[in-house]
Every structure is written in C-alpha cells, then in structure tokens.
C-alpha cells in the first residue's frame, strides 16, 4: 500500500559470485525470475484466474459487473498518465539524488541526504495533501499535475537510493580503469558506471513503477479520476460496493501482473553481456 513509509525495502544483496549484485525490493509485485519455477507458475495461476474472473463475472452477471467494466476504464488512462509521468520525473530526481548522495561535495551531499531523510519520514498520503495544498497557495495547477508532482517528489527519494545502490554495486576497478585511461569523473560516470549500473537498477526501478502505480490510488482523494476514483463514483451511485471493489482489485491485479512480466523480460534483455 503506502510503500513510501517503509525504508527497508531496498537493500543490496551481494552474492558470492563476484559481481552478481542484485537489488532486491520487497514492494511492488513479485517480478518473475525465469529460474524460479514456483514463481512463474504462481504468476500464471494469478493471471489466468484474474483474466477468467474479468471475463466470466461480466458475462454471468452483467448487472453490475459489465456496467462497472464499462464505467471504470476512463480511470485506467488517468492512472497510467499519473504513473508514467511520475516515474519519469522520479527517475530524473532519483538520478540527481543518487549522484548527490555519492558526491564528495559536502553541500550537495547534505542537500540530497536531507531530501531523502525528509521524504522517508513523511507518509505519502500526508505528502500528497501537503504538496497539493502548498502548491495551491502559490499557483493554481490542475489536480493531476499536483498529484504527479507529489508522487514524483516522494518516489524520487526512493529512486535516489536505488540509483545510489546501483552505482555503488559497480566494482571500483571499473572506475580506476576509466580514470587511468584519462577519462574524468563525469565521463567515467556517463560511459562506464551508469551503463553498467542501469542493469542493476532496472529491476528495482520496475518494482518502484509497479509500487507507484498502486500508490496512485491515493490520488483519488485529490479529485483525480483514476481507477479507484471512478470506482468510488460508481459505487456511491449504485451502492454495489462489493462488486465494484472486486472489479477494481482485479483490474489493478491484471495491470501489475502484466507489468511485472514486461519488466522481467526487459531485465533479461539488458543483461546480454553477462552471458557467456
């Protein structure tokens, strides 16, 4: 749920095999690992179950299930809009924060660390309200923009930790080799470290993406018509609370299951140079 409150989600596990560092994240959906048969089958069972229910329920009982299925999808687009823009912004903020956190410049380092500390200490819901109303005092922005700013502000801090861990996971010998050839620190980061760190960073970023998508349900409180908001609107009119939230849950599950698969495939593609 409110993933932002937990700060122990991200940790680096250093496997005995010299550089097979993986950042494991305990939130988001479980990303299927091709070698983990158990998880793969769990994924299939969940997907088949979800899809069957999404098809069968509206067929067997069109009222209200089919009506819900027709009413809610407007919200899917909004949810995706908020998620995609927030994650893109969060990646930019995260990269800057991560670089700031490893910077030798004390001021930059302090600012980045302070940002992470503050964001980690405040629940996402509180941040959402705060930024929404704080922004509202200065400029009048559309609700969806306020939601995106708040989400990326929160997730940027977590993304910063992911980037920092990813960069740190790259063997220092790579940096030394690059410096010894005559590359400066910035070039070393751009040509040698980040292209390699990206592979370590992608799975947790994918996880953050899924966690963020789920957390966007919180923006329904800010009058943004996402999936949950559309569902609440429907339920408030029809009083079909149980049926509505069943469908909402299934839709979220369907989306996260698909996303976790896509990320797992991307992760596999990105590690081509690690294969013999």
């Amino acid at each position: 749920m409110m993933g932002c409150v937990f700060d122990h989600r991200t940790y680096v596990k250093n496997m005995s095999d010299q550089e097979k560092t993986k950042i494991e994240v305990g939130d988001g959906a479980a990303i299927p690992n091709p070698e983990d048969r158990g998880l793969v089958s769990a994924w299939w069972i969940a997907l088949v179950g979800t899809v069957s229910l999404l098809i069968i329920l509206p067929m067997v009982k069109p009222d209200p299930y089919l009506r819900i299925l027709k009413f809610v999808p407007d919200g899917i687009l909004v949810t995706f809009k908020v998620t995609v823009f927030s994650i893109l912004l969060a990646i930019v903020i995260g990269l800057l924060t991560g670089l700031g956190r490893i910077s030798k410049n004390r001021v930059i380092n302090l600012i980045a660390s302070l940002y992470v500390e503050i964001v980690r200490g405040i629940p996402l819901l509180v941040q959402l309200f705060y930024i929404y109303f704080a922004l509202g005092r200065i400029i009048r922005v559309p609700d969806i923009v306020a939601a995106i700013v708040a989400m990326s502000f929160c997730y940027g801090a977590y993304m910063g930790e992911v980037f920092r861990a990813g960069i740190k996971s790259i063997d220092f010998g790579q940096t030394e080799a690059s410096l010894s050839l005559g590359f400066n620190q910035r070039q070393t980061m751009a040509y040698v470290i980040l292209p390699q760190a990206w592979r370590t960073i992608l799975p947790p970023v994918g996880n953050e993406f899924i966690a963020l998508l789920k957390d966007t349900s919180l923006v329904s409180i800010l009058a943004v018509s996402d999936i949950l908001r559309r569902g609440r609107e429907f339920a408030a009119e029809s009083f079909n609370y149980f049926e509505t939230y069943t469908m909402i849950a299934l839709i979220y599950l369907f989306i996260t299951l698909l996303l976790s698969k896509i990320i797992s495939i991307m992760e596999h593609r990105l590690s081509h140079y690690e294969r013999r």
């Binding site: 010998g173 790579q174 030394e176 080799a177 010894s180 005559g182 040698v192 292209p195 390699q196 140079y273």
Partner: peptide
C-alpha cells in the same frame, strides 16, 4: 591530471575490462 593519465597506460591485477563493452 587527465592529460597526464592519457600518456600513462595502466594494467591492473584484476584486468578491469569494461564489462558492458
């Protein structure tokens, strides 16, 4: 220092080849 390093080749114990290239 980067100009100086361009004229100094270095070979490491652990090779340190760029793994992504």
């Amino acid at each position: 220092i980067n100009r100086v390093r361009m004229e100094l080749g270095m070979v490491f114990q652990s090779f340190n080849l760029f793994r992504h290239k």
